[in-house]
Nucleic acid binder design. Structure first.
Lengths: 225, 225
DNA sequence: ACCTGAACACCGTTCAAGT
DNA sequence: ACCTGAACACCGTTCAAGT
C-alpha cells in the first residue's frame, strides 16, 4: 500500500489562507462567480472541501478576502502621486481597470464596509480631498459622492461582465454594442433620451466616460469650495 | 373522496405573473433576498413550485420583474415636476426611499440594463438633463454619472440592509453607528480620513448626504455648460 | 392551457474520524 | 493542529403526469 501512504503524506505546499485566496482568484477570473464552489476549490487544491474551513470562516469571508487582495495590489500600484486631483483620478482608474480584469470584485466591494478593500478606497480618495483644503463638510460629501460613483460603475461593469459571459459576447465592446442595439429599438416617444444615448453607447469609450464622471464631481467640489 | 376533488378544483384566484410578483415582493420585503425561494413562494401561493415556471422564466426573471414593479410605481409617484433640477432630485430621492423600503431592489438594479427599471431611471434623469439645454456630450456624461452614483448608493444601502438583518441591528441608524464604531477604532496613521469620517457617520443624515452628492454632480454640470 | 410534486443535479456547511 | 470526505439540509430547475 505504498501508494496509499504516499497519498496521505503531508504535502510540500501546506494549505494557507493566502494560497486558498490565490487559487480562488484564479477560479473567479477564469469562470466567474458561479465557478467558485468549495468543491471546485478543494479539487484545485487537491484537498477535502472541509479543509478550507480551517483557514476561512465561510464563502463570504473567502470572497471578501479575494476582493481585498485585488484592491490592495491595485492601491499599491497607484502609489502616491503629487497632485491630489491626479491621485484621485489614478485611484478611480485603478479600480476601473481592476474590475475590468476581475469583474467579480465589482459586486464584492459593496459588502461589509469595514473590509480593507473599502477602507483603502475611502482613505485614498478622502485623504486627497483633504489635501485640496476644502471645508470638512464638503470633504465628506465629496468623498461619499466619489466613492459611491466609483462603486456604481464597478457594480455595473461586474454585472455586464456576468451577462457578457452568459451571452458568449465575451468582450465588453461587443456586449455594449448589443445593449445599444436593444436601446435603439425602444419606442421614441417613451424613451427619447435612451434611444439617443444608444448611438453614443455604440462607439464611446466607457473608460473615458467614467473619468468624465469623476471630473464632473471634482468640478462640483470646486464650486462649493 | 370529496376532500380530494375539492383540493384539485380550480382556485378562484388563478395564478398570474402579476400575482406571483406581488407575493414575491411581500416575501422579499419581509425576509430579504434569501427568504425568496420557489418553495416558499409556492407555499404562499398554495401551488406547486413548478407552476411558477409557467408564468416566469426563472429566478432572475422573477427578481427583475419585482424590481421593475417597484421602480415603475416610484416613477409614477414622482410625476413630472416643472423645473428639471428639482425633477432630478425628486427621482434620486424616490429611488433612495424605494430602496429604503425594499432594500433588495438595490442589488437588482444593476442586472440587465435593458430592463424597464433601469430604462425608466435613465430616461427620467437624462430627459431632464436635456431640458437644461446643455451640450449633447455633457448630457451623456452627466446622465451616466448621475445614474451610476444613484446605483452606487442603492447597492450600498441594499448591502447594508442585508448586513443589518444578519446582525439584528434592524434600523439603519443603529447599523451605521456600528460601522462608525468600527471605523473609529482604526489606526490613526493608516486611516486618518476614515477615522475622521466615522464621527460624521454617527450623527449624519445619509438621505441628506445622498442629495448633497446629486447637487455636487449637478454643480459640476453647470461648470462645463 | 395550466397545474402538481417528485426527481435531479447541484450548493454551503458540519463533523466524526483520521494523521 | 490540521486535514479528509461522507452526510445534512437546503437550493433552482425539469418533467411526466394529471385536470
Amino acid at each position: 500500500m505504498a501508494i496509499r501512504t504516499q497519498r496521505t503524506e503531508r504535502r510540500a505546499d501546506a494549505l494557507s489562507k493566502a494560497r486558498i485566496v490565490e487559487v480562488a482568484i484564479e477560479i473567479l477570473d477564469a469562470g466567474g462567480e458561479s465557478a467558485l464552489t468549495f468543491r471546485s476549490l478543494a479539487a484545485r487544491l487537491t484537498t477535502g472541501s472541509g479543509a478550507i474551513y480551517w483557514h476561512v470562516a465561510d464563502k463570504n469571508d473567502l470572497l471578501g478576502a479575494a476582493a481585498d487582495h485585488v484592491v490592495a495590489q491595485l492601491m499599491a500600484e497607484v502609489g502616491c502621486g503629487a497632485e491630489p486631483r491626479e491621485a484621485i483620478r489614478a485611484i478611480a482608474l485603478g479600480v476601473f481597470d481592476a474590475i475590468d480584469a476581475h469583474p467579480w470584485v465589482g459586486s464584492q466591494l459593496f459588502r461589509e464596509p469595514w473590509r480593507p478593500a473599502m477602507l483603502q478606497i475611502v482613505e485614498g480618495v478622502g485623504g486627497r480631498l483633504r489635501a485640496l483644503g476644502i471645508p470638512d463638510r464638503v470633504q465628506f460629501d465629496a468623498a461619499s459622492a466619489l466613492v459611491h460613483y466609483i462603486l456604481g460603475v464597478a457594480g455595473q461593469n461586474a454585472a455586464n461582465a456576468r451577462l457578457a459571459r452568459e451571452t458568449d459576447r465575451t468582450d465588453r465592446a461587443a456586449f455594449l454594442a448589443g445593449v445599444a442595439a436593444r436601446w435603439a429599438q425602444l419606442d421614441p416617444t417613451e424613451h427619447p433620451f435612451v434611444r439617443q444615448m444608444a448611438t453614443q453607447l455604440r462607439e464611446h469609450d466607457d473608460r473615458k466616460q467614467f473619468l468624465a464622471g469623476v471630473d464632473l464631481i471634482l468640478a462640483g467640489v470646486e464650486t462649493v469650495r
